[in-house]
Design a protein around this nucleic acid. Sequence first.
DNA 1: ACCTGAACACCGTTCAAGT
DNA 2: ACCTGAACACCGTTCAAGT
Lengths: 232, 232
Amino acid sequence: MPAPTPAPSALPTGPPAAAGARRRAGRPTAAILDQDGITTAALELISSKGYDGLTMAALARSLGVAPSALYNHVASKDDVLLLVEDHLAAMVDVTAFGVEPWDAAVRRWAWSYRDVFSEHTPLIPVIAVLPVANAPKTLAMYEAVTAGFRDAGFPEEKIISAIVALEAFVFGAAYDVTAPEDIFDAGSLAEQVPNFTAAVDRLALENHPRPTDVAFSLGLEALITGFGALRG
Amino acid sequence: MPAPTPAPSALPTGPPAAAGARRRAGRPTAAILDQDGITTAALELISSKGYDGLTMAALARSLGVAPSALYNHVASKDDVLLLVEDHLAAMVDVTAFGVEPWDAAVRRWAWSYRDVFSEHTPLIPVIAVLPVANAPKTLAMYEAVTAGFRDAGFPEEKIISAIVALEAFVFGAAYDVTAPEDIFDAGSLAEQVPNFTAAVDRLALENHPRPTDVAFSLGLEALITGFGALRG
DNA sequence: ACCTGAACACCGTTCAAGT
DNA sequence: ACCTGAACACCGTTCAAGT
């Protein structure tokens, strides 16, 4: 006697995210999955369980399909991460370019860029190697920033280098946001590094709400000032 | 009839890195493993097979032990990465601090820091969350840099923030070094992002040996200039 | 074309047993 | 204390079979 099959759903097509309803093998009348749905499900999973919880199995489960079904829509897990990255790139604030002065626009862009990706640092290694051709929203962000630099009188041959440098700083700073508060506590080795320990203590006395924000501001303002001098 | 056992080695203790010589279960008369040997083997493995090849199984194999033996000396694979990171930190050039002028010393430090870690970007997420108390050589690097900043007249409460900002830039730039050359090729989307495409083409015309070095130099010089103004 | 289900070749880590 | 060997609970990915 075969194991009793769970009661088949009365509805031929359930809501996209519904799990539990059994489905036989074979092509469904309408596709259940698409890249948008996969992206949304991945973002929800990341937000609820973190990047450790983002596995192909968990992603499939949240979409109510078998893991292998995902491979009809993405080539790999890295492909999923690329979809997520491009979605996030669209959330970075580039609206100030062409509206506010150049330095204010860069400030807004860089802070929002850092804030968005500080919650998604596992994507940073992916972005670093990511050909922009595969990420249209990321590309649109670059276009807006490039136009902003050009219209501000930036010499064209230096624009990409300046953006790359700012981006490097933003990505590194995004990691810093995730660092534990006591990362600079030397512990039992403190007496061997007196200058460092004194400087750490001195900074703590200032007790800003977030030391990581102080460092980011310090570096960003230096970059803005330095790059601002390049404009014609 | 039991399977024939492989011929037991005539030597009671082989050379440390030798594999193939069989060893019975039980505590060996002298410990085979230690953290230094594990670190060295890990570095060799990374250099020959890359970080994908650095698995606990492969590491154990190169040391001639069972994978579980590693756990008598490290708590986890992350612990191995920490050992590697601290080894690399000792290779970063801080010798110019206190010898050359401040700006030249920062330049030397930042370039060598980037160069060392651009070959080891998978460590960057680990470093970001790494309490310095567990990494003595990394801590020694911070001490040298901090002393250099202090002796150059840097206000003490800003030293750590400035180092953190420089480090963020260095880590981000280390990733950029690994990017493929055509990362900014917009492909079929080129006509939708004219400003970006023009700026990318314009930079290519300058044909520097390494665009990543141009961007790093541009950002680093801005940071050095900006931070230099903070000195008393 | 797009799904299921079984299978593959891994992973890092744990733990009893041995000396 | 420090090793072996077996086992565990995963991973991402492939592929034949089904509609």
